[in-house]
Amino acid sequence: MKRLTPYLLVLPGGLWLLAFLVVPIIFMASVSTQEGDVVNGFVQTFNVGNYVQAIGDFHTQFLRSAGYGLAGTAIAILLAYPMAYWIAFKGGARKSTYLLLVLLPFFVSFVLRTVSWKFMLADDGILLGPLKAIGLLPEDFHVLQTTAAVIGGLVYNYLAFMVLPIYVALERVDHRLVEAARDLYASRLGTFTKVVLPLSLPGVFAGVLMTFVPMTADYVNAAVLGGPENTMIGNVIQTQYLVGNDYPVGAALSLTLMAATLIGVFAYARALGTENVLAAAAR
């Protein structure tokens, strides 16, 4: 019985994952090599052509998604790190309040949040309207339908996933290590770069995973805030499924995205594995 306990503990979660993650993926993999249409039904022909078509027709959107994901993640790090740092070291007794504030947007639906951005940033909306009226901005200036709007929306929507892991990592840094570094002649900056930053890198590492993956697969921000030039792979997949009813190509796109993301993440983990980064920081 004792030896079974660990297995019993993973059983509920394991079954959940099996039912709702593994089975759909297998199902999708099967669909991705089928042929046919909605009216006459799809048959399994092991047609890899769907993949060729998926990558051939939509590689622009794949690359754009990766680009947006990278840019969004980078900006999120730059915004989240100082925030997490401030909460962890200067937050004092109010830390949990600040953390709650970071999480507050999550109490509103993802789509609603993004749509409210659309209202705020509309060409003659509450923000740009007055600025144009007083002549600070040219009449044809716009934010919506631009790359900046999409990336901005991505960063806004996923920022908390970057803040939280970094905060947790910073929170765990023993303050005595900071004092030890200062005692050993490190300046404030030196203490940060040699001790605090390296010790918080696992948090940054986790934050990158938690934001890059969903950002790359996102479709809401591009749909609401972007224009035709900003279509991401998530939008393509959505269109294939819901508009074009081309399930096989949609499935092929999804699996390609998943495989590409996994490969990217593994490459990232290998290249920037915590141990490697720490070893470099130790000098």
């Binding site: 023993d174 290590l177 004092e179 030890a180 005692d183 300046s187 010790l199 920081a281």
Partner: peptide
């Protein structure tokens, strides 16, 4: 400040850099 003083400290908990 501590980094400008020519004394060094050995902490009770050692405070060795774990990384």
């Amino acid at each position: 400040p501590a980094d400008k003083r020519d004394v060094n400290m050995v902490f009770q908990s050692y405070a060795l850099f774990p990384h």
